[in-house]
Design a protein around this nucleic acid. Structure first.
Length: 461
RNA sequence: GGCGGCGUGGCCGAGUGGCUUAGGCAAGGGCCUGCAAAGCCCUGUACAGCGGUUCGAUUCCGCUCGCCGCCUCCA
């Protein structure tokens, strides 16, 4: 059974199942106002792995992840570029999915958009005011955090200490610096929707409450997002639900942030690496390996060195997949092999599960699988094809659970390369090694490498 | 100022009161190979500093130093 670290309690606890056999997961998605960066890639991969693993263990996962398609940043950019804010959002969202598809992340089952739920948000705000938990000012409607039981639970801070540390300019009309906007009254030029408080638009923290409760229902199982969303975003979501008297998320998961040179990567700091650039220079699976290699809650340093490192490790996986694939052609499944595979699969799976169940310990799970890869290679080297193949397959199957699809060698050598390789092999057989080496250089110039093996030459990128 | 976390061998990065070296990358040596590559084998003896608890601590407690995150938008 999977146990996860819960931000609210600070403890590792079993993943709750409000409805036995299924898990409701709400992940705070992107605000679509620009290209996604490496940090976005990480958080998507983390929850992708969580979801894949839950499904691997037989759970039905209701994976909901929103897209914030109305926000100050979208509006500001649209204004600066003199275009419709909807265009900016739509274009950025397309960019988002392109990048996430490239990463091999499964799309969430449901992707609600903030703009589709504004009416419900306006209703929610009105209800909060009616209940005495929110108040209206000249520029909007605010939640009175003092009135909410347990406010500060996720931040692990009291309202007083949050107030003491507040760096926000205190508006005259706000009762407390920690109070936050539920509804922003219309400003000239921006998008607006009607509400009981006049035209305006919802505050960011309101949308996720409406969409998570609306789509997953009260007391849903998991709520996730980046560590930087703990406060104030998630705190404020929870506050609204509590003020409404509705049971909110049972367990809070937060992933660590991506760092560059030891510092948090963020759009506002300007030190971000765009995902598209990252993926252009590396196998997207290498980034996944990098993400899997460290604990999902730790900071993750991203850079060329780290990526090259992960990429080399990935090469081992691909190489084994290639070996096994080649062997499959050489002989069919012998009798008894099926049993062997089943046994091996179970022992690899048990170790894998033990690591993953403990707060999604992908570094350990991955290390174990790489040991299995090495052992499989050793067995194959020693001529024990059956055992080697079983172990190798079991390892590859579990890597696939983590989303590392081995040997996705989509490109095949062209005829020019094949022809050169043929000529080289001829030269080699006839003992003309000088010619063979020259041909190898030509092949290398075309981006391919020739590996000689007992079963003949192999080409790879 | 408040809260949370971190400091592990050349680098990245897990983990643990003693038992046996996580894993990856890089490096050196070897097997294999015409040569390579790949694969495999061997080698490195780490846990910020100072105290304390303990038969024994890298692993628990305290302090010091350093770093990071949150307290404003942010995955």
């Amino acid at each position: 059974m999977l146990r996860l670290h819960d931000t609210a309690t600070g403890l590792v606890a079993p993943v709750p199942e409000r409805d036995p056999g299924s898990v409701g997961l709400y992940v705070c998605g992107p605000t679509v106002y620009g290209p996604p960066h490496a940090g976005h890639g990480r958080f998507v991969l983390v929850y992708d792995v969580l979801r894949r693993y839950l499904e691997h263990t037989g759970k039905a996962v209701r994976h909901v992840s929103n897209v914030t398609d109305v926000d100050d940043k979208i509006v500001d950019r649209a204004r600066a570029e003199r275009r419709d804010w909807r265009d900016v959002a739509a274009e950025s969202e397309e960019q988002w999915w392109r990048a996430m598809d490239a990463l091999g992340a499964l799309r969430p089952g449901v992707v609600p958009h903030a703009t589709e739920h504004v009416a419900e948000m306006a209703e929610l705000v009105a209800e909060l005011v009616a209940r005495g938990h929110a108040y209206e000012t000249s520029d909007g409607v605010y939640l009175a955090c003092d009135t909410v039981e347990g406010y500060g639970m996720l931040a692990h801070q009291s309202v007083d200490s949050l107030r003491a540390g507040a760096r926000v300019a205190v508006s005259e009309e706000k009762r407390s610096p920690v109070d936050f906007a539920l509804w922003k009254k219309a400003k000239p030029g921006g998008p607006t929707w009607p509400s009981a408080f006049g035209p305006g638009r919802p505050g960011w923290h309101t949308e996720c409450v409406v969409m998570s409760l609306g789509l997953l229902g009260e007391g849903f199982d998991l709520h996730g997002g980046g560590l930087d969303l703990v406060f104030p975003h998630h705190e404020n979501e929870r506050a609204q639900a509590v003020a409404l008297g509705r049971r909110f998320a049972r367990l809070w998961v937060h992933n660590g942030l991506v760092t560059v040179g030891g510092e948090k990567m963020s759009k506002s700091l300007g030190n971000y690496v765009e995902l598209e650039d990252l993926l252009a220079s590396a196998d997207p699976r290498a980034y996944r390996m990098l993400v899997l290699r460290s604990s999902y809650r730790s900071p993750l340093e991203v850079g060329e060195a780290a990526l090259a490192d992960a990429s080399a490790a990935l090469g081992r996986v691909d190489e084994l997949a290639r070996r096994i694939g080649t062997l499959r052609d050489e002989r069919g499944a012998a009798s008894g092999e099926v049993d062997g595979l089943a046994r091996t699969r179970k022992s690899v799976g048990d170790r894998f599960g033990a690591a993953m169940d403990e707060d999604l310990a992908t570094p350990r799970a991955l290390a174990d699988l790489l040991v299995a890869v090495r052992d499989a290679n050793r067995l194959l080297d020693s001529g024990d094809v059956t055992a080697g193949r079983s172990l190798g397959r079991a390892a590859l199957e579990h890597l696939a659970v983590l989303g590392v699809e081995p040997g996705a060698a989509s490109d095949r050598p062209g005829t020019a390369v094949l022809e050169l390789a043929g000529r080289r092999e001829e030269a080699r057989r006839s003992g003309d090694y000088a010619a063979a080496d020259a041909l190898r250089s030509e092949i290398a110039a075309l981006g391919w490498q020739v590996d000689d093996s007992p079963s003949g030459p192999h080409l790879r990128r």
